[in-house]
Design a protein around this nucleic acid. Structure first.
Lengths: 112, 112
DNA sequence: TGCGGTACTTACCTAAAGGAGAGTATAAAT
DNA sequence: ATTTATACTCTCCTTTAGGTAAGTACCGCA
C-alpha cells in the first residue's frame, strides 16, 4: 500500500449489490434457497432436483457447492448405502429469506 | 388451448423470481436504477457512464435499452445539438426501489 | 478550418454459465 | 445374476454477457 489518494468519487461500484449478487446470482440459487425455506427443513439432493425441474445434475451440484461455500446452506452427509445427503439453511441463509421474499412477491404482483 | 391437465406439481419454475430477475439481472441494472433513485431525478447518459464506472459504452446502452423495454425507466430526448438525453424512473421502476434497497443493505451488512 | 462535446452504433473477441448424456460406487432387493 | 436407488462426476458443446476499440452525426467555438 502506498499513500496515494485513490480517486473515490460518488461511485456505486462497491455497494452491497455486488456483494449480495455474487452469492445469489445464478439461474437456480434463489429458488434453491426458497425451496428449502418453504419446506421448513432440509431437503435431499433428488428432492431438490425434482423441485427445481428442469435443472441439470451439473447445475444442481454447482449451485449447492456455491451456496455451501457462501455459508448460506449446510450439507449433511449420512454415510450409508444408498447415500443420503441433506441440504439445509444456515442462520445466514435464513437472514436472506426476507430479501428473496421481496424479489419473489414483486415479480408475482407484476405477472398477474 | 386443449383441455389437457398439465402436470402442475409443487414446482418453483414460475415463481416471481424468474420474472423479477429477467428484468434486473445484469452487471449494472440495479446500480443504474439505484443511481437514478439516489439522484432524485433523471440522469443523462454521460452522467450515468461516470457513476457506473467502469461500465463500457456498449453495456450502458444495452442496460438502458433493456430497462426501458421493461418499462422501469423512461428515455426523454431533447432534440438539439449536441444531443441531450435523460433517463428517469417510471412508476414501475420506483416500485422496485424498496426491493433493491433490501438487496443492497443485506450485502452491506455482511461486508463490514 | 479543424477541435471538442454528446450520445450513441458496429464489429470482433473472450470468458463464464449452463445443458446433454454418459459413467461411478455400493449394497439391498428380486 | 440383474435391477434399482442415491448422489454425484466428467467431458463436450452451445449460448450469452460483457469488454475493446473504432466509427458516426452535428454544431458551436477558437
Amino acid at each position: 500500500m502506498e499513500d496515494i489518494n485513490y480517486i473515490k468519487e460518488n461511485r456505486l461500484e462497491d455497494t452491497g449489490f455486488a456483494y449480495t449478487l455474487k452469492l445469489i446470482s445464478g439461474k437456480y440459487k434463489m429458488q434453491t434457497l426458497y425451496a428449502i425455506s418453504l419446506n421448513q427443513g432440509p431437503l435431499r439432493y433428488n428432492e431438490l432436483k425434482r423441485l427445481l425441474t428442469p435443472i441439470s445434475f451439473k447445475s444442481l451440484a454447482n449451485t449447492l457447492r456455491e451456496l455451501e461455500a457462501a455459508k448460506l446452506i449446510y450439507r449433511k452427509e449420512y454415510p450409508k448405502i444408498p447415500p443420503k445427503v441433506e441440504y439445509g439453511l444456515t442462520k445466514l441463509g435464513e437472514s436472506l429469506i426476507p430479501v428473496l421474499d421481496a424479489i419473489c412477491t414483486w415479480g408475482e404482483k407484476q405477472m398477474k
